[in-house]
Amino acid sequence: MAYRGRGRGGFGGGGGGFGYATQVPFELFPDIDLPNVKGILDPDKKINQGKSEEENLVNQSRKFQKIWKGSPFYLEQTTSKERQNTEVERYSDRLKPKTTIRRGALFDILELKAFPQELTGGSRAQQPGRKRVRWNPDSELQKLDLFEKLEQRQGNNDGKEKKEGEGEDEDEEEEEEEPEEDFSDDDYQKNQDFDDDDDDFNMEDDGDDEPLL
């Protein structure tokens, strides 16, 4: 009986002695000999187009999988540039036979009236479908960055000057100039409220909280 670590054998009480388990490299999916599954790789059982029923089911399942992977319904945590590039339709593609309706972005497919209003945002339902842009997970972060920059600028101008980016579009991706840091108002420079931990407000420790030995 092989077992890990030291100790006696388990159920049945046998298997004495000490020993260590031999270390075997872990393999998640080891290679196996393929069984010749009846009706799949069996050349006798063919129905249409020289394929078995199972083979047709397998092919159809894989087609569905491919379609969903390439559709606007497929959302991943990280959006790579590659995935977005695959959406571009080439001139040569127009001659290729289309198996399904190419329904562009997510909001072009959905009939927004059939969803709860909190998901569609109420006013969105009235907008024409074509103008809806494809959802970008990074857009939320871009907005936060923009607001942060605007806040900094407002703080520096003491609210006297109007913000430059106010009239611009929210989703503008142009980088705005970072304002130069001004240390004149800083507490550190002025040395105000500076506590060197050695003033009258610090009471002397009388040591009464020390543990008694």
Binding site: F73, L75, L106, I109, L110, F115, E118, L119, T120, W135, P137, S139, E140
Partner: peptide, 26 residues
């Protein structure tokens, strides 16, 4: 609810909304 979902998944509200739209659609 939508609010609870945003809390549990720790995704942005827009991500949760889009995910729900897809799941309802299908």
């Amino acid at each position: 609810s939508l609010k609870q979902l945003i809390g549990f998944t720790e995704l942005t509200p827009q991500q949760v909304k889009n995910s729900l739209l897809i799941l309802i659609q299908h």
